[in-house]
Design a protein around this nucleic acid. Structure first.
Length: 650
DNA sequence: AGCCTTTGACCAGCG
DNA sequence: TCGCTGGTCAAAGGC
């Protein structure tokens, strides 16, 4: 357990030493910005909390400076992706933006972003992204590239109205001195020039992918939700077309990126991130137990929505969609809260989960172990909501979520989790499925809206992914097989464990999730599971591929988790906002897609998330990401191109 | 009556 | 071998 603890990072812990917004952009944006980046004063406190990424994954200039040498595979992967994409990105998007907006659009400097291994220097914690003071994260989101469809005005979209002087006023943010603003778009805008308004209710929770751990922070719902989604979604969808591996990588990148953005936004808006809970998933098999975790998250989301509270409730075992029986409770050393042990009540189902809850009832940590060898039982509420139908309809369900099946799912990439998985489906929706499934509950969850959307073609693709897992729902047998496969691996061990940490904001705040992103430890690393899924998956080989690959990318897993976890996002079940969010990448003609859910990749992630969130205690760190990185770098261009192609013409 | 939770005790792994 | 810790068992009780 100790290992887990180590792995688990709480946002609080994370809090970026002093991430600077400017740095963030510099990394994100073009070189120009970079050069201009203003060094933060050491003692200066900035926000604040923006940093979402896991320590390991953190990439900030600060981090770099501090640890220039540090670069974990995972991080590298992400970074690599950024950097590679960078060139394309700049050329394409930036130029477009500039042309369209008529202003000098800042470029994202992916190069600047570098992963750092938290493992190496746990202490070092820098945000992936730093936003220049005054600049609002939302602006990033707004960029045409990401959010072409956004209704809200933005310079990039052209909807945004500029002030006579060319400066944009940002009601929300805007701390930068006027002087700087003019140089670059951002500068001129005072960084905060414009911010998105939350479209959906939502919550805004994001997960950054952390490998092993997932941490979610609660953000004010306002900020992100929509934005992140859009971005992700775009990528995700695009990814479908892309090769699985590539897709994964990109997805990861995207996700992370978004996440960070969200965080930034959040921070800005909220002024800080609160940690609500931390969840850990153990995955034995391939699949992450996402289900549960995710489910829980979803549930939480739902709760939040309903009550407006942060995640408190999420913890109930049943939330996953599976039936659990508590067979023990113990105060674990080193753990602040008592740990409850649950078993899946389904006959012969080996899935167990450990849940730690705060005094307030918030789930602080969830660990799933084992894969469900059965379909998730239909929840009553579902039927009430009509979700039931969806489940049935959705092939994906099978997926991962299912843990059930999933078991294999866990194994898969993330391995783990069967338990968790199911939730996604259920919750969400099954909907979509697919995608969502993979993504995580949240993705899927997004609720109805999502569901509807989910069914889009993309989803089908997702479903495929899920495929491997997906099939689970369809056939218990398959699921079983999957399980078996995992067993073969022998893993329950835990190697597959993944943690997810979620933080619930005590704040009124809505809850948001932040992820750590470590990806290093993704389930994938744990490696395993994929096979299981494969066995199960009737889906085309392709799907299988997807699954396996997805599983691997650690970051991805975390990523997914984040997405899924974040109730705030539409991902979560029921979150309308999410569903509503348009995909930036998607053309107007395209149906709205739930951002997250759809992509197979996501779906896997989801599984991963569930599973993956929790990294295998020891394994996670080691593993690596390197592969992912490799792929990313190589693949990114392609993916990027695909994505770009899908993007609506500016 | 069935299922689940609670809770103390027991077992296994590890240093 | 002992102690610690985590995980599990199983009786008792509640819903």
């Amino acid at each position: 357990m100790a290992g887990i603890d180590d792995n688990v990072a709480i946002i609080g812990d994370w809090v970026p030493p002093s991430p600077s917004p400017r740095a963030f952009f510099s990394t994100m944006l073009g070189d120009n910005i970079n050069s201009r980046t203003i060094p933060e004063s050491p003692g200066e406190k900035r926000n604040e909390g923006l940093y979402l990424g896991q320590p390991e994954q953190m990439t900030s200039e600060n981090a770099d400076k501090r640890d220039g040498a540090q670069t974990s595979g995972v991080q590298l992967t992400e970074l690599g992706t950024y950097s590679e994409q960078k060139s394309n990105f700049r050329g394409g998007l930036v130029e477009r933006m500039a042309a369209r907006a008529g202003f000098n659009a800042p470029r994202l400097n992916t190069a600047s972003i570098r992963p750092t291994e938290s493992s190496v220097n746990p202490e070092i914690r820098s945000p992936y992204l730093t936003i220049p003071p005054g600049l609002s994260p939302t602006t990033l989101l707004e960029s045409p590239v990401f959010l072409s469809n956004l209704a809200q005005p933005s310079p990039t979209t052209g909807k945004f109205s500029f002030f006579p002087n060319g400066n944009i006023k940002n009601s929300t943010v805007g701390s930068d001195p006027p002087d700087k603003s003019k140089e670059t778009f951002f500068d001129t805008t005072d960084s905060s020039s414009f911010a998105f308004k939350p479209m959906g209710e939502s919550g805004s929770s994001f997960f950054l992918g952390g490998t092993s751990k997932i941490t979610s922070a609660t953000f004010p719902q306002q900020s992100f939700p929509s934005i992140d989604v859009s971005v992700h979604s775009g990528n995700a969808f695009q990814l479908h077309g892309v090769e699985p591996a590539k897709a994964q990588f990109e997805s990861r990148n995207t996700l992370h990126f978004q996440t960070e953005l969200s965080k930034l936004t959040t921070d800005k808006d909220s002024g800080g991130i609160t940690v609500a809970d931390k969840r850990i998933f153990d995955t034995v098999d391939g699949r992450p137990e996402h289900s549960s975790p995710l489910d829980e998250q979803q549930d939480e989301d739902g709760d939040q929505r309903a009550s407006g509270e942060s995640m408190a409730a999420g913890g109930t075992p049943s939330e996953d969609g599976y039936n659990w029986r508590k067979y023990g409770q113990k105060q674990v050393k080193g753990s602040e809260y008592p740990r409850s042990y649950y078993k899946c009540t389904h006959p012969n189902c080996p899935v167990k989960k450990k849940v730690e809850r705060s005094h307030e009832g918030h789930i602080t940590e969830i660990i799933y172990k084992g894969v469900h060898n059965h379909l998730k039982p239909p929840p009553n509420w579902r039927s009430a909501t009509g979700s039931m139908d969806t489940q049935l309809d959705i092939p994906e369900q099978g997926w991962p979520q299912i843990g059930a099946v999933n078991d294999s799912g866990w194994a898969g990439t993330q391995k783990g989790t069967a338990a968790g998985t199911p939730d996604w489906r259920n919750d969400n929706v099954e909907v979509t499925s697919s995608a969502s499934g993979g993504l995580g509950p949240e993705f899927g969850n997004p609720s109805s809206s999502v569901q509807g959307q989910s069914r889009t073609p993309f989803e089908s693709a997702d479903a495929v992914d899920a495929s491997s897992t997906l099939s689970n729902d369809e056939d218990d047998d398959r699921a079983t097989h999957g399980s078996v496969g995992y067993d073969g691996e022998g893993e329950e061990s835990e190697s597959k464990r993944r943690k997810v940490e979620t933080y619930a904001t005590e704040m009124t705040r809505n809850s948001n999730h932040v992820n750590s992103g470590t990806s290093n430890a993704t389930p994938a690393q744990a490696g395993i599971p994929v096979q299981t899924q494969v066995h199960r998956a009737e889906a085309s080989q392709v799907h299988n591929r997807m699954t396996s690959r997805f599983e691997r990318p650690p970051a991805f897993g975390s990523f997914m988790q984040q997405l899924g976890s974040s109730a705030g996002f539409s991902f979560g079940m029921n979150q309308p906002g999410f569903a509503n969010m348009g995909m930036a990448g998607l053309g107007s003609g395209q149906p709205k897609m739930p951002v997250i859910p759809i992509h197979p990749y996501l779906a896997q992630q989801r599984a991963v998330n569930e599973m993956g969130l929790m990294m295998p205690k020891g394994e996670a760190k080691v593993e690596p990401v390197a592969e992912a990185n490799m792929n990313l770098s190589s693949n990114n261009p392609t993916v990027y191109q695909q994505i770009m192609s899908r993007l609506p013409q500016m």
